[in-house]
Simulated scan of single mutants.
Amino acid sequence: MKIALTGATGIAGQAILQSLAAHDVTILGRSTVAGHSHIKWTLDAPAPDLSGFDALIHAAFQHAPGKYRGGEGNDPAGFITSNLDGTVRLFDAAAAHGLSHVIFLSSRAVFDGYPKGTTLTEDLPPKPTSLYGEVKVKAEAHLSALPLTGITLRATGLYGKGNANKWAPLIADYLSGNAIEPRVASEVHVQDLAQACQIALSQNQSSIFHVSDILLDRHDLLAMVQNLTNSPNSLPKRSDADVSQLECTNLKALGWQPGGMELLRQTLPDLLP
């Protein structure tokens, strides 16, 4: 399969690209990636020529460094122009050039308006509270109306090696003896997201897939760090917050099996400083 991939140097895109070794992947973006064809493109630009491609995987998103919710900074209009208008142009080009599949990386943020502790099913209507979530919802809706197989992957927090090591500052603070605020959140390994993407490529009808795995308390994460490093530092208290979790019924029905706590344990040594 000949695939166009956006966001290949990002947290999600790196893992997705690595999982597509059996395919002919062209990078759409500012930067080249060794071993792959490249088309220079940004979300602010006209859509690239997608003729000859079978599928598009769209994982690119422009935002303030380190922020998704609130990633518009002081330029909400520019945020919409880049991320929504640019995405719509890209999806329209995919339809116009006859691509069979478009896979869109969306977010759990589309459900932020629900009370904490809500079970988030695939058929639950979105209720975003951030501009980030609103843009994702509108892009999802545009994709679903196009004459192709459009798959939306709504992912929770991603973790893993490389760019995906979002816990580096947290682990450094803990090992330095700094106080750590309690927090609990849902997480999924980037490899499991990549596995979900491969499943999506095999589907023949438009769908929404939720991508989430473990509910992780910082106390438990840092207890594993403590065990690996023999740190004498105190662990944070467990969080008593409720968390709304994505229910991943559709993906699991197709054989998706995320790595759970065992994959976290295997990965954690590579995330230490």
Rank of each mutant, 00 (worst) to 15 (best):
A8L: 05
A12T: 06
A12S: 06
I16K: 10
L17D: 03
T32N: 01
W41A: 00
D44W: 12
D44V: 06
A47K: 04
S51A: 09
D54Y: 05
L56E: 03
I57Y: 00
F61T: 04
A64Y: 02
P65N: 08
G66H: 05
K67Y: 10
K67L: 15
Y68H: 15
G70P: 00
E72S: 08
D75L: 11
D75W: 10
D75Y: 10
A77I: 12
G78T: 13
F79Y: 15
V88E: 02
V88H: 08
F91Q: 01
A93N: 00
H97W: 00
I103W: 09
S106V: 06
S107H: 00
S107Q: 02
G113R: 14
G113P: 13
Y114Q: 08
K116I: 10
L120G: 08
L124I: 11
L124G: 06
S130N: 09
Y132V: 00
A139H: 09
E140M: 04
L143I: 05
L143C: 07
T149H: 03
G150L: 07
I151G: 04
I151K: 10
G157E: 11
K161T: 15
N163R: 15
A168D: 05
A168E: 12
L175Q: 00
G177Q: 08
I180C: 01
I180F: 05
P182I: 05
R183V: 12
E187A: 10
H189F: 05
V190R: 04
A194S: 12
Q195R: 14
N204A: 10
F209N: 14
S212R: 00
I214V: 04
L215G: 10
V225S: 08
N230V: 09
P232I: 03
S234K: 14
S234V: 13
S234H: 13
L246M: 11
E247Y: 14
N250T: 15
L251Y: 11
L251N: 12
G259A: 00
L263E: 12
L264I: 09
L271F: 03
L271Q: 04
P273K: 10
